[in-house]
């Protein structure tokens, strides 16, 4: 009995991999081979930018599953990011265990946190969830800041970095991002994905079709919280230092996570990675302008307004608009259509 079953699941896996398309493998292969083939192009700074882009991709993808596909917008995903980071940090700081275990354990702690907030908020509809997550992240920040005995408060947590070079972190975060991407694609291709999108599109219809909407909103939140916390735990081991104002930040984590997904393309698979790349590049650009200071936040706000008005589906979702803009002069040129007009 087990053999045919194994064959069936192997077939399914093949189908899934076929549907995945070549883009994923090309991107992963290029990034994996880059240090080997193009090592001369890279320095620590470039490595750092790619590592951050991949980390933000994970965060954007995590938010996107809940906010984009399931339609439950969170304004406080820093709550899960910070919880992942602090889980890893506290393992090292309090128990002397490697902070790396935070990658998994942080995910589960964040799921537990999500269970509480989801249980309370998903009975209600409308903006309650968005407001509750906003409050949750702020509460977590204040707790981490003031519970000095447990979290070391505003002094933060420092752990010894495991590697002195960037390369190991590069491959680890690449693996994490690839796994996140694959899991989310598999989830969206399954019954879960259909239910998530149905909930976003019309909750009444979904409920009338036998979908327990509250339960599936919670499930979506658990996946999202898990990956967000994984990114947080990676941040801990990569940066080696966290404090409450960094990892539970409203503007630097919660809002930028939303921007990564929205600029790249809400409810698309490639939106968050593309959004992460754009946001990191813009952020670095501003850092190089001495007069700019923290003006990048202002610019991000303006960018978001422009995106919402002109490209509500983001760079990936509205690619045709970008290219349409480039093509427009061509289509205006005299041709069969214009020639026939009197």
């Amino acid at each position: 009995m087990s053999e045919p079953n194994a064959a069936v699941s192997a077939n399914k896996l093949m189908d899934f991999l076929k549907e995945l398309g070549p883009a994923f493998w090309i991107v992963v292969a290029v990034l994996a081979l880059l240090p080997v083939v193009g090592g001369f192009l890279l320095n620590d700074y470039i490595y750092h930018l790619i590592i951050l882009t991949l980390m933000w991709s994970i965060m954007g993808m995590a938010w996107n599953l809940l906010g984009g596909f399931t339609g439950q917008v969170s304004f406080g995903h820093a709550a899960f990011f910070g919880t992942g980071a602090y889980t890893g940090g506290l393992l090292a700081f309090k128990l002397g265990i490697s902070a790396w275990y935070g990658l998994l354990l942080g995910g589960f702690v964040a799921v537990a946190l999500g269970a509480v907030i989801g249980w309370i908020c998903f009975r209600l509809r409308g903006p309650y969830f968005a407001l509750a997550t906003l409050a949750l992240a702020e509460i977590m920040r204040l707790v981490a800041n003031n519970w000095v005995d447990f979290t070391n408060g505003p002094m933060g947590i420092q752990v010894q970095r495991t590697f002195t070079t960037k390369l190991p972190y590069y491959y680890i975060v690449l693996t994490l991002a690839a796994v996140t991407y694959l899991v989310i694609r598999a989830v969206i291709a399954s019954k879960l994905g259909y239910y998530f999108v149905a909930i976003r599109e019309d909750q009444d219809a979904a409920e009338a079709m036998g979908i327990p909407t509250a339960r599936y909103k919670r499930l979506s939140l658990y996946f999202s919280a898990f990956f967000m916390a994984m990114a947080g735990a990676f941040y801990m081991v990569y940066m080696g230092y966290i404090d409450p104002h960094v990892v539970y930040a409203l503007h630097d984590i919660s809002i930028i996570t939303i921007m990564v997904a929205m600029v790249g393309g809400v409810a698309t698979f490639w939106g968050p990675p593309v959004g992460a790349l754009i946001m990191i590049l813009i952020g670095e650009l501003f850092r190089r302008l001495p007069w700019a200071g923290t003006a990048h936040l202002t610019f991000f706000g303006i960018l978001l307004i422009v995106i919402i008005i002109y490209m509500p589906n983001g760079v990936v979702g509205d690619t045709h608009k970008l290219f349409g803009f480039l093509r427009r002069p061509v289509s205006r040129a005299p041709g069969p259509m214009t020639a026939e007009k009197p």
Binding site: V197, E201, D202, A205
Partner: peptide, 11 residues
């Protein structure tokens, strides 16, 4: 079924 139809619009 719903009198005011409720298709999932983006599916």
């Amino acid at each position: 079924t719903f009198q005011v139809v409720k298709p999932f619009r983006r599916m």
